[in-house]
Nucleic acid binder design. Structure first.
Lengths: 277, 277
DNA sequence: GATGAGGTGAAGGAAATTTTCGCGCGAAGG
DNA sequence: CCTTCGCGCGAAAATTTCCTTCACCTCATC
């Protein structure tokens, strides 16, 4: 890519919306080049001509705008009106989901699914906010007929971890990657030959030391009003959901009946007075 | 708007993407009209000319497409490869978040925030998957120095609900809106004069009967492999987050120190060996 | 310093868009 | 029933925008 072309490409990249409003001549003037160069650049970018680049730009601009609009300012302030808070939160969590999905290592995930699907039993460790995620994973696994248990009590967790052996799986969930109460039972499980999985936002943290498989969650920025627990939870839950679906797929034969069985069992707990289901 | 113009407008409305790819002449031919009519229609729609309408159309198309693209097929199938599962899940949850944010009644939310911020104590009821959300809300409220408790045991919940009175708040979380185990304690709380809040996907369900305030979560479609619990949880958590931030804002004076205090207290639970924080 | 291989822009040609203008259809009035 | 008028409509001209060609200029290489 030549110098003039770079200038054009730069202008296009830096402000697609503005460029979409410009004609070839306009963009050429803006970048101090000629119309020919603009067209050449468009070609280089993979479009048949400037017209199409312009259309694509309009689309891109619409995208960005839609993405930005709710995040007027990225951070939530103390004096934000409630509608803004809702919009920002929703946007942030969406972003977190996208980041997490993009950053997930499919190989590790696949291996983790395989381990869980074939496990004799599974222990899940998590304390604090991650404890809820641990429970969520456990609930899900139980629903498809697997044997799983969540531990938030570090002592009991270690006591149980001692029982694990090969073919068993231990999962540690910690955002910081350095929560001692979670690392300890994972270490014990690791030492006893179980397959160990870490779900953490810091794949380079101490927890990974004892993890055969590491699933990375997104480490979105936090702010005073928005502690890390919030976005890490969203991210962790997505990973858990992925694990669950993956395992359910692999064990479909047994998972499907188990799912409907648990569903049936709950039906009578819902008052008949309400709208069906 | 004249007949020919209607035809053009219709074509544009029914398939923006296709029209964006068309030239004036093309669109005129497609709609069986003339170029002049197309331009006139564009003017009528508020654009200076067809060129600008087309750009707008491209933007619109990009929007729509972005909504669709990742959802290659909306449902997760048993034989979906893992990367697809991840993408679909992330997309679905993002969609759920957007729906929830869009559907939240700000008046109700604002009132709920006010009630929570001024509550003497808060009880939260939830069983099953919603139980985790209830715990999440409780954890958050506790972190900013409020008195809150989650109940998943229906008997204990009712026993506790009896203690509630005016100025107290009871929150029921149920996706179906008809979970007896959650409705019952809410009813008791309601009868004792507490402010009752329901977080449910069925605002017309029985639970709303005893709720002063109803916060509606999104009721995304579920599928065999993706039980309702999954998307309802995402939605519920967003509502909880909104409540939390709202309350934290209103009680900022006391919430801020409480937040940092709880943070400090946890610091030593993280091994120093890892990367900081 | 000569030579050649691109990068670059000016100008002309093609295609798009916009405007103009007149035709024809239907409604209202004689 | 006929005339007249208004107006929607489209063909074609006018204009703008976009694309192509070609000649010039720059810079690296020998």
């Amino acid at each position: 890519m030549t110098r003039s072309m770079q200038r054009v490409a730069e202008a296009v990249a830096s402000d697609p919306a503005a460029c979409a409003a410009l004609t070839v001549t306009g963009l050429a003037e803006l970048t101090g080049t000629s119309e020919a160069t603009v067209v050449r650049t468009a070609r280089l970018l993979g479009y048949p001509g400037y017209r199409d680049l312009r259309l694509a730009l309009a689309g891109l601009a619409a995208h960005q705008q839609s993405g930005r609009a709710p995040a007027v300012t990225a951070d939530i302030a103390v004096d934000d009106p409630l509608p803004d808070v809702v919009a920002k939160l929703a946007y942030d969590e969406q972003q977190t989901l996208a980041d997490t999905a993009a950053g997930l290592d499919m190989v590790q995930l696949s291996a983790a699914v395989g381990a869980l699907a074939g496990a004799r039993r599974t222990d899940v460790y998590g304390v604090g906010a991650s404890g809820l995620v641990a429970q969520d994973l456990t609930q899900k696994l139980l629903r498809i007929g697997l044997i799983a248990q969540a531990h938030s009590d570090p002592h009991l967790a270690v006591t149980n971890a001692v029982q694990l052996r090969a073919k068993d799986v231990a999962v540690a969930i910690t955002h910081s990657g350095s929560t001692g109460d979670v690392i300890e039972p994972l270490r014990v499980a690791f030492d006893h030959g179980a397959t160990t999985i870490a779900i953490t936002g810091r794949p380079d943290g101490p927890v990974s030391q004892y993890a055969d498989l590491v699933l990375t969650t997104s480490t979105a920025r936090e702010s005073e009003l928005r502690p890390a627990a919030m976005s890490s939870r969203t991210s962790q839950l997505l990973v858990v959901d992925c694990l669950f679906i993956g395992v359910a797929q692999r064990t479909y034969e047994s998972a499907a009946p188990a799912l409907s069985a648990s569903y049936e069992a709950l039906a009578h707990r819902h008052r008949s007075g309400g709208p069906s289901r």
